[in-house]
């Protein structure tokens, strides 16, 4: 087959990043939007770890950055879910387009 090099990881992460971006733009479900953001952060992590493996196994800066990105990404996700649940309590909808006004009466 072929030799797996840095460039393959970079392509993979670029594709994953773009899928995440696409998900943020096109989804209507807020939960799916938050998941797509996590895809973007994971793509960035792949980049960092791949660069660290191929260029910088001495200082391991990429690994450390990946840890920080993970911690902060999960923190953002948790806050996002908390706010999502608050929105759901108010409007009984998790629609990113905000079409819930007629349902407010219904609840």
């Amino acid at each position: 087959m072929f030799d797996v090099t840095l460039i393959h990881y970079l392509f993979l992460s670029a594709v994953l990043f773009c899928v995440g971006l696409l998900g943020v733009i096109v989804s209507r479900h807020l939960l799916r939007v938050l998941i797509s953001v996590e895809f973007m952060l994971n793509a960035v992590n792949i980049n960092f770890v791949a660069f660290s493996n191929y260029n910088d196994l001495i200082r391991l800066d990429g690994h450390i950055m990946a840890i920080f990105v993970m911690a902060i990404g999960v923190c953002e996700l948790a806050i996002g879910l908390a706010i999502l649940i608050l929105v759901f309590r108010k409007t009984h909808s998790v629609d990113a387009d905000g079409e819930y006004i007629e349902e407010e009466k219904w609840s």
Partner: peptide, 25 residues
């Protein structure tokens, strides 16, 4: 929050390329 997360992911992508070409942050 969602806009901010996307913005920080974009920043991080740029940072990762900078890291890749210099080997440091």
């Amino acid at each position: 929050l969602v806009t901010g997360c996307v913005a920080s992911a974009v920043i991080l992508y740029g940072v990762s390329l900078l890291y890749g070409m210099s080997g440091s942050l």
